[in-house]
């Protein structure tokens, strides 16, 4: 059941003097949904790019199903890892169907010659690809829009299409980079359903996300990345309970911060101030009523 699909060992990524990712060990098991969270600039996307071969890690290895991945994006996809992008990167001027067909590139092999000669093999492969692509479009619910240009789709559907395009390469592991960014709550919930459905197909999923509710609802396991280092990893309860995670997001109390004594003092002072202001208010109230009555009396 828990065979590791993806294993990152000691991955370090340096850009010149800046270490964006520092010796991160990370595993995704088959049939698992794993979340990767962390404050902005924690190195999540850099780590993602190391996994998908867009960056070559300075140190460490990434292996997929026991085999070390070559550091080339197209070979990583060939091996069985597909991804989406944080800012949608669809082929804007291609139709919805064509976008998914491009995703099938690694699973077909018709070259230039078969395209020029158009033999029966070519037609069969094209038909099969189209059938598979339509199946995926039905799965995400965009079958009716197959001939629309990708650029004309509404935002949420573009996100979905990007997922369909990634699924077209028949991956064993799907990497989603902020799949709900910019979505409203309904769309986020729909995406949640979609990710569960993808998991049910037997595809492991790794999600980067800032939406904590989404992450904790969805993931079997969550890893927290802070300043390039993995801080905690565990179930949602473990991560949520961890003080260091809260500190990473909200900031830690600094040295010489107000202690309990000072806090109590402040509270007392506040209470006193409240009481005073309450007195003043009531005094003002009575004063004004008196004034009212006098003006009324004069008028009478």
């Amino acid at each position: 059941m828990t065979t590791p699909v993806l294993e990152a060992r000691d991955v370090t990524m340096r850009f010149g003097g800046l270490t964006a990712v520092r010796s991160v060990d990370f595993t995704v098991n088959s049939g698992e949904i794993v979340g990767l969270i962390g404050p902005n600039g924690a190195g999540k996307t850099t780590f993602f790019n190391c996994l998908t071969g867009l960056y070559v890690p300075t140190e460490g290895t990434v292996s997929y199903q026991g085999k070390v991945l070559p550091p080339k994006p197209h070979m990583v996809t060939q091996a069985g890892i597909a991804r989406t992008f944080q800012n949608i990167r669809l082929f804007a001027n291609m139709t919805v169907l064509e976008n998914v067909l491009v995703g099938r590139h690694t699973r077909t092999k018709e070259g230039l010659w078969s395209a020029l000669l158009r033999g029966p093999g070519f037609r069969k492969a094209e038909k099969e690809s189209e059938a598979k692509a339509m199946e995926l479009l039905e799965f995400i619910g965009l079958a009716a829009k197959r001939d629309h240009l990708a650029r004309n789709l509404p935002y949420g559907e573009q996100r979905k299409l990007e997922i369909a395009r990634a699924l077209a390469s028949e991956p064993g592991l799907l990497l989603l980079d902020e799949p709900t960014a910019g979505m409203n709550p309904q769309e986020t919930r729909a995406t949640e359903e979609l990710v569960f459905a993808i998991r049910d197909k037997g595809i492991a999923v790794l999600v980067i996300e800032h939406d904590m509710r989404f992450i904790f609802n969805l993931c079997d396991r969550v890893a927290v990345l802070v300043q390039g280092e993995k801080l905690v990893e565990g179930t949602s309860d473990v991560v949520q309970a961890d003080d260091r995670v809260v500190a990473a997001y909200l900031g830690e109390p600094f040295e010489g911060a107000p202690g309990t004594a000072e806090a109590a003092e402040v509270e007392a002072a506040e209470a006193a101030a409240d009481a005073e202001s309450a007195d003043a208010e009531s005094a003002a109230d009575t004063g004004s009523t008196e004034a009212d009555s006098t003006t009324k009396g004069e008028a009478q």
Binding site: P73, E98, L101, G103
Partner: peptide, 17 residues
């Protein structure tokens, strides 16, 4: 299709294999 994909977005195209 892969030519057009490269024209549209080379990074995404390579990520599609």
């Amino acid at each position: 299709r892969s030519w057009i994909a490269i024209r549209e977005d080379e990074t995404a195209a390579t990520a599609m294999g």
